[in-house]
């Protein structure tokens, strides 16, 4: 099985000589959901920017097999466009034909439960709804790889858990791989097949956890002893990383 994304000896140093990243190896397999947790400033966003091609690494190589969508920390919606037109933006920039656009947008609006707000503009939406729109904008492109940079970190606990559940069920239906950066360990465990813990700057992976909960996960999973014990072990590794 060839991976959809691979990092080989990727290092990055910023112009001010900040050593931001030092990844020996990272592989993302088709359909796989991998989360990265690590202390702030350890280079997680830099890693995603390099994976997306927004930033060229100082050295090493990144191999990508497939199309990609980036979901940013802010919803990055255009404030003058309605939800529907914001979702259309990605397709518009890629010259997808009009009828196809409408069909696909109706479809993703349903997926993220935003049918009723399609004609609203961002200032009329809650934080959770903005993030749903941002998700829809990425989903509508049907990419092979999703990159998420702390997408739910600005949301309240309740909206966050709902979005986690919704995201899992949406992704279960399509065969895309995800690289998900978060600082919430329970979010990482709930969503992922694999969790990688990163060290402080220059970031590298210090521990890998396989999450054995299968593909169907209910909200109750969060309150099981297995879940608690796994988050406990990751938290310990995370604390180790911070020292």
């Amino acid at each position: 099985m060839t991976s959809v994304l691979e990092f080989i000896d990727v290092r990055h140093q910023f112009a001010d000589s900040t050593q931001a990243l030092d990844i020996t190896n990272l592989q993302l397999n088709p359909g796989e959901f991998v989360s990265i947790v690590g202390p702030s400033g350890c280079g997680k966003s830099t890693l995603l920017r390099i994976a997306s091609g927004l930033l060229a690494p100082s050295s090493g190589s990144v191999i990508r097999n497939g199309s990609l969508q980036f979901v940013f920390q802010d919803s990055t919606l255009l404030p003058w466009r309605t939800v529907r037109k914001n979702i259309a933006l990605n397709l518009e920039l890629d010259d997808v034909d009009k009828q196809e656009v409408d069909r696909r947008i109706d479809n993703v609006l349903q997926l993220v439960s935003m049918q009723d707000s399609a004609e609203k503009i961002p200032r009329q939406l809650s934080g959770g709804m903005k993030m749903r729109t941002s998700l829809a904008r990425a989903l509508v492109c049907e990419p092979d790889i999703f990159l998420f940079d702390e997408p739910f970190s600005a949301l309240d606990e309740f909206s966050r858990e709902r979005l986690n559940s919704d995201l899992r069920s949406i992704l279960a239906r399509i065969n895309a791989a995800s690289l998900f950066v978060t600082h919430s360990i329970s979010e990482a465990v709930f969503l992922s097949d694999r969790v990688l813990v990163m060290s402080p700057r220059p970031g590298h992976f210090i521990e890998e956890f396989i999450i054995p909960f299968g593909s169907l996960r209910s909200d109750e999973l969060r309150y099981t002893p297995e879940f608690a014990s796994l988050t406990g072990r990751i938290a310990a590794a995370f604390r180790g990383a911070r020292q």
Binding site: S52, L54, F72, D74, W80, L93
Partner: peptide, 27 residues
């Protein structure tokens, strides 16, 4: 124009004209 919005357009390899008309001028 915020970095995130600029990145969004950059990921599509848009022309300067597209970025100007769809992002910069409205913003």
């Amino acid at each position: 124009v915020p970095q995130g919005l600029r990145d969004l357009f950059k990921l599509h390899n848009c022309t300067r004209l597209t970025v100007l008309l769809k992002l910069q001028l409205p913003y």
